[in-house]
Design a protein around this nucleic acid. Structure first.
Length: 153
DNA sequence: GCCAACGTTGGC
DNA sequence: GCCAACGTTGGC
């Protein structure tokens, strides 16, 4: 099975690449969108992840992470005190899942969304065409190109 | 802070 | 099953 590639969004004020660098790895809880969830369930250990800062100035890819643990139930959905609580997720048949991701590298500077939009080879990225999806698949060529841009600084 | 895009909910 | 209303995301 070939390695797959993904892009995961986070608001740096909530959890940033620097937090991941410090923690080495983290669990990716709180995804409450079916398409994003399905993408997480398709992830395999070792898959590459573009780490994206949304709600940032500028927004963009700030580094690389990797999948270190495949999808398992998001128990925050069962916790009434959690902001991610969802009464419709039954512990017997969990609706929401999370994965663990590990730190790989932080780019010297952000590969910004406007820059990505300017690159013809990246015009089909989900990021460019569906700005709302928080966990999305990335083609290998796109992943390699963004990483190359991130390292060339 | 605004607003477009998109997903979800719920009445019928 | 349709679709209007509503809520959320995220760029600007």
């Amino acid at each position: 099975m070939a390695m797959q590639y993904w892009l995961m969004k986070t608001e740096p004020g909530v959890y940033s690449i620097d937090d991941l660098k410090r923690d080495k790895k983290t669990f990716w809880e709180g995804v409450r969108n079916y398409q994003a969830r399905n993408n997480m369930r398709a992830m395999k250990k070792g898959d590459g992840v573009l780490f994206y800062h949304s709600q940032a100035t500028p927004p963009g890819v700030v580094g690389v992470a990797k999948v270190v643990k495949e999808a398992y139930p998001d128990h925050f959905a069962f916790d009434k005190k959690s902001k991610y609580f969802d009464a419709k997720s039954d512990p017997e048949e969990p609706r929401w899942f999370m994965v663990d991701v590990g730190f790989v590298e932080k780019f010297g500077a952000v590969v910004s969304l406007p820059e990505i939009r300017e690159v013809n080879a990246l015009k089909d990225m989900v990021l460019v065409n569906n700005s709302r999806l928080s966990v999305q698949p990335v083609r290998k060529a796109e992943f390699d190109r963004v990483v190359k841009m991130g390292r060339a600084r």
